[in-house]
Amino acid sequence: MAPGQASLPRSHRRRPASSHRRGLLHLAEHGASSLDTRNLCMAGGVALTCVGNGWILAAGRFNLYIQPAAHDAGTALGAALLIWHWPRSSSGPPAAS
C-alpha cells in the first residue's frame, strides 16, 4: 500500500481509478460519436496505459488500434495530423521553423 493510503477508507482509494475509467470511456464515446465510427486510434502517453486500454476493449464498442511507437512527446499525433491535412491543402505542408 502506498504511503498515506492506510488512513483512507477503501471506497476513497478506489475513486481515482473509477473517475479515470469514466473519463477515458467518455472521451472514447465522444470521439466515436462525433466521427460516427467505432474505430479508435490511440497515441501518446495515454495509449501506454494498459489498464485503460483494457477498459476500452471491455466496453465492447470499439475497434482499438494503439500506435506502436506511442510516447508522451506528441510527435506521432502531430505527424498523423500533418499527413491527414496535407493532401487537402493547396499550399502543401507547413514550413519547418
Rank of each mutant, 00 (worst) to 15 (best):
M1L: 09
M1S: 13
M1G: 14
A2Y: 04
P3E: 08
P3A: 10
G4F: 07
G4R: 03
Q5A: 11
A6N: 11
S7W: 04
S7Q: 13
L8H: 03
P9A: 11
P9L: 08
R10P: 07
R10D: 15
R10E: 15
S11E: 13
H12N: 02
H12P: 00
R13Q: 15
R13S: 08
R14H: 09
R15D: 09
R15T: 12
P16K: 00
P16I: 01
S18T: 10
S19N: 10
R21D: 07
G23F: 04
L24M: 12
L25T: 01
L25N: 03
H26L: 07
H26F: 12
L27V: 06
E29G: 00
E29K: 06
E29F: 05
H30F: 10
H30E: 14
L35Q: 11
D36K: 13
R38N: 09
N39P: 00
N39C: 07
L40P: 01
A43S: 10
G44E: 10
G44H: 01
G44C: 04
V46E: 02
A47H: 03
L48C: 15
T49M: 07
G52T: 04
N53L: 12
W55L: 09
W55H: 13
L57V: 15
A58E: 14
R61C: 07
R61F: 01
F62Q: 06
F62C: 08
N63G: 07
L64D: 11
L64C: 13
L64P: 06
Y65K: 07
Y65N: 05
P68G: 10
A69N: 12
A69H: 13
A70N: 10
A70W: 04
A70P: 04
D72G: 15
A73V: 00
A73D: 12
G74Q: 03
T75L: 09
A76Y: 01
G78Q: 01
G78R: 02
G78Y: 00
A79N: 07
A80P: 00
L81M: 15
L82H: 03
L82C: 15
H85T: 10
H85N: 14
W86M: 14
P87Q: 09
P87W: 05
P87L: 06
R88A: 13
R88P: 00
S89M: 04
S90K: 02
S91W: 02
G92P: 05
P93N: 02
P94R: 00
P94G: 00
A95D: 05
A96S: 08
A96F: 02
S97Q: 01
S97E: 06
S97L: 03
